[in-house]
Design a protein around this nucleic acid. Structure first.
Lengths: 206, 206
DNA sequence: CTTCAATCTTGACAGTGTCAACTAGACAAT
DNA sequence: ATTGTCTAGTTGACACTGTCAAGATTGAAG
């Protein structure tokens, strides 16, 4: 994505996308906490303050990137539900969780910026809207489970937090590669099967 | 913790502790990603490069702080197990999880630095040792559950990751205050009861 | 009293985020 | 063709940052 910089180019055509692509590279190399606006600009072949012109400030740039992350996550979670349409509600719920973890592992730079770059999500309107609509996929799957099982004593909000915690926690551990000793040689699919299988085992349906 | 700076003080007596106390303040105010060595130094009333002298560099300072966080978390988790010594192994396991979440909420600055400041834990020997011994508390509680229940088909490593994910995920959501709509007015104790209660409900013992 | 190591300071350097002022180009109206 | 105007990008400056080398100060051991 690094671009040779001969002369000033005043109309790039699609600079915001180019900047976010450069950002993605840098996050992958050095982590979300070691990003600088100026290096993003350098890699995109533009002047040092071009990014701020498009995104307002550094946090704005990270928020724009995180927004895209939520779009991708939303789509992948929704697709997972569709692909598991033939199974039980619990299967679909586990599919959402697995999609969440796979997203974190396959798109680490997005996950890193979304959850660990220090941006204040609520203060970015578009970003928090995307986050909410992503969460809605999970909530829908939980509601399906509750109505399928006919649960009456279960608070759906608690169950949502339960599955969200499970998925987000596993995703965090996997991205950090901080698995327990003796478990770090397993693949991410092993973790997913183990954890969501544990959930089903404890549920007595596995 | 801010100290008036009249003249040079060459032997503070306990500067490392004073620096980490100042760090804690700043993290609480502005988050772990907005910390600077120089502001830490200013608040402790010393010169701008005193922190680097004690901790090597910025990441070293964060690592030293994170190390203390793991010590506290270890102690609180171990205490939780002791306090639940009369109950079942599952009760003790839930107590460890609850202690984990309470630690994150009550000591947000520690949690923030430990897991979201971008430090590379494995490259800090003391830090990763403390992290491992903290994890050992959880592993012990899992082993107890498995032997108490007589599980034979359950991989203890999978079960460890399961409970760790649950606790770490809930802690992350709670610290970020990113709970589902309609659930943000509940207290952290509600979340804990809901999530670990969910775990027991699915297990058929609650 | 001397030496010495540890503690902390001073000063410098390159890199950073942000802001104001400037410029280049596209595009429409005349 | 000329003009005007809006958007996109630049330039230059400022205060702040992490890091490093060199110096200053102190407590303690001999």
């Amino acid at each position: 994505m690094t671009v040779s910089r001969d002369a000033a180019v005043y109309h790039h055509g699609d600079l915001p996308n180019a900047l976010l692509a450069a950002l993605s590279e840098i996050v992958e190399e050095k982590g979300a906490t070691n990003v600088s606006l100026r290096e993003v600009a350098r890699r995109a072949g533009v002047s040092h303050s071009a990014p701020a012109h498009h995104f307002g400030d550094k946090e704005g740039m990270l928020a724009a990137f995180a927004e895209r992350g939520f779009e991708i996550l939303h789509d992948e979670a929704a697709t997972a539900v569709d692909n598991a349409a033939g199974g039980s509600a619990l299967i679909r719920l586990a599919a959402v969780g697995a999609a969440y973890v796979r997203f974190a592992v396959d798109h680490t730079s997005y996950f890193d910026v979304m959850f660990r770059s220090g941006i204040d999500t609520p203060s970015h309107e578009h970003l928090s809207a995307r986050a909410a609509s992503t969460l809605a996929v999970l909530i829908g799957a939980v509601d399906d489970l509750i109505s399928e099982k006919g649960y009456t004593e279960v608070d759906p909000r608690h169950m949502t937090v339960y599955f969200w915690s499970l998925a987000h926690g596993l995703a965090s551990l996997a991205v950090d590669r901080s698995m327990p000793p003796g478990l770090d040689e397993l693949t991410i699919e092993d973790y997913i099967a183990g954890v969501f299988g544990m959930s089903q085992h404890l549920n007595g349906t596995g």
